[in-house]
Simulated assay, not measured.
Amino acid sequence: MLPYRAMLASHGVKQSMSRKGNCFDNAAIESFFGTLKSEYFHLEAPKSIDALELGVDDYVHYYNRERIKLGLRVSVR
């Protein structure tokens, strides 16, 4: 959207874009945001922007350091 792109440019933000119809460069972050919303935001909606910022910060720490990722587990026999 042109207004969105103008707002980004006015703040010095460079938009990340790939070729039309190629969403693979965004797949990892889209997956993370989906998980963030289902495991954090939809369970307990924050009451303020400060609470949201703190909650997301805590969730990112949990996601990177504590959350069990089945794809990374090694089976022991």
Rank of each mutant, 00 (worst) to 15 (best):
D50Y: 04
K47M: 04
D57E: 12
S48Q: 08
V76N: 12
V76A: 05
G34Q: 09
F24I: 09
H42G: 01
E66K: 14
S38F: 06
V56S: 00
L70R: 14
I29L: 14
I68V: 11
Y4P: 02
Y63Q: 02
N26W: 03
L70T: 13
L54K: 15
R5M: 09
L54Y: 05
K20T: 14
K69T: 02
K20G: 01
H42M: 07
T35Q: 14
C23P: 14
G71Y: 06
M7V: 07
K14L: 11
K47T: 09
E30T: 03
R67D: 07
D58G: 03
L52P: 06
G12I: 03
I68G: 01
A6Y: 02
R67K: 07
L36R: 10
S31C: 15
A9G: 04
K14C: 03
L36Q: 07
A28H: 08
V13P: 00
A45Q: 15
K47A: 14
A27G: 05
G12K: 11
S18R: 13
S75L: 10
V56C: 06
H11V: 00
D50N: 11
V74T: 12
S38A: 13
V13M: 13
K20I: 13
Y59R: 07
E53K: 15
V13Y: 02
L8C: 12
G71N: 15
L36M: 13
K47L: 08
V74W: 01
G21E: 02
Y62A: 02
G55Y: 07
D58N: 14
A45L: 15
S48G: 04
V56G: 01
L54F: 05
S16L: 12
E53Q: 15
V60Q: 04
Y59T: 00
F24K: 15
M1F: 04
R5E: 10
M1R: 13
Q15K: 10
P3Y: 01
N64A: 03
N22T: 06
P46F: 09
C23V: 01
S10L: 03
I29E: 05
S38P: 04
R19N: 13
I49W: 12
C23T: 11
H42W: 10
E39H: 04
G12P: 07
P46E: 12
S10T: 05
L72Y: 07
E39V: 09
I49R: 15
A6I: 08
S10H: 08
L52E: 03
V56L: 08
R65F: 09
P3E: 05
T35W: 05
L52C: 08
S10P: 06
D25I: 09
A27E: 01
D50T: 09
R65A: 09
L8Q: 07
G34I: 04
E30L: 00
L43I: 02
M1Y: 03
K14N: 12
D57L: 13
R65I: 00
D57M: 12
D50C: 03
H61Q: 11
G34W: 06
G55T: 12
H11I: 00
N26S: 11
S48I: 12
K20W: 00
R5G: 03
D25E: 13
R5V: 09
Y63P: 05
N64I: 06
M1N: 06
A28W: 11
S48Y: 06
E53S: 11
S75K: 13
R19Q: 10
A51T: 07
V60W: 03
I68W: 01
D58K: 10
N64W: 00
D50V: 11
N26L: 10
Y63V: 01
A45V: 14
E66M: 10
